[in-house]
Nucleic acid binder design. Sequence first.
DNA 1: AGCATCTGCTTGGTATACTTAGCACACCTC
DNA 2: GAGGTGTGCTAAGTATACCAAGCAGATGCT
Lengths: 123, 123
Amino acid sequence: MTDDDKTAASGAWRSLGDFIRSQRELANLSMRQLAEIAKISNPYLSQVERGLYKPSAEVLKSIANALQISAETMYSQAGLLDSSTSRENSHHGVEHAIKIDPRLSVDQEEALMRIYRSFVGGG
Amino acid sequence: MTDDDKTAASGAWRSLGDFIRSQRELANLSMRQLAEIAKISNPYLSQVERGLYKPSAEVLKSIANALQISAETMYSQAGLLDSSTSRENSHHGVEHAIKIDPRLSVDQEEALMRIYRSFVGGG
DNA sequence: AGCATCTGCTTGGTATACTTAGCACACCTC
DNA sequence: GAGGTGTGCTAAGTATACCAAGCAGATGCT
């Protein structure tokens, strides 16, 4: 151990690294194995686990997938999801559902949104 | 100039850009305004909207926040959340959300439902 | 006309995410 | 002992996300 690891790791990302490492060890995978599955390099995985880098969302998803945990769990661990977003459907329900519906084109989304908002009074 | 934009934009990210742009215009924000709120540069926002770059999750979250939409919505649009998590929302999501929205009258419900179904092809 | 002030976009540079090659230590097998 | 294979980590480079400065067209005002 080089005496002061804390120098580079900034809080949230460090704990994300700890989380990944613990999940990896829980799955009995070596860094090289996990890196292979997640299609990233093992040195990079090393840095990520030690909190030296902030992995992109794509990498995060890939790691989550390799560890067989949900991407959502990963993101909330990374502090990228505002924890209680999808729970309260009562309020933003319709707008949210419209936005994430993959079958709607952008134009259709906008149209529906306008109509809905005109119905509920824009607020 | 505009004849071959397709050279750089690769599918998923391009549609994400379209999504952001439509949401921005829906909110009546200029690029500079949104960029200011989201704390990114306006040229970068321009590139993102045109699908030239794949924004990091942090930027994505920041933009979502600025547009007052949930980070989850953003990620699912970016294809970063395995649809398994948000799927139950998206499939019956719109219809269900419309039905349980207390602010909609019965007539309004039916109108929205008709429009939605015409968009998605009747199910 | 001319100047101001929007709009989105291009250019060129910096910061950082990510990779390829290789080090150092531990545990084997010969 | 020397070689082989496993572990995680370091160093140096490449790719790309991101930013600051500035351009070109549209609108408006005097």
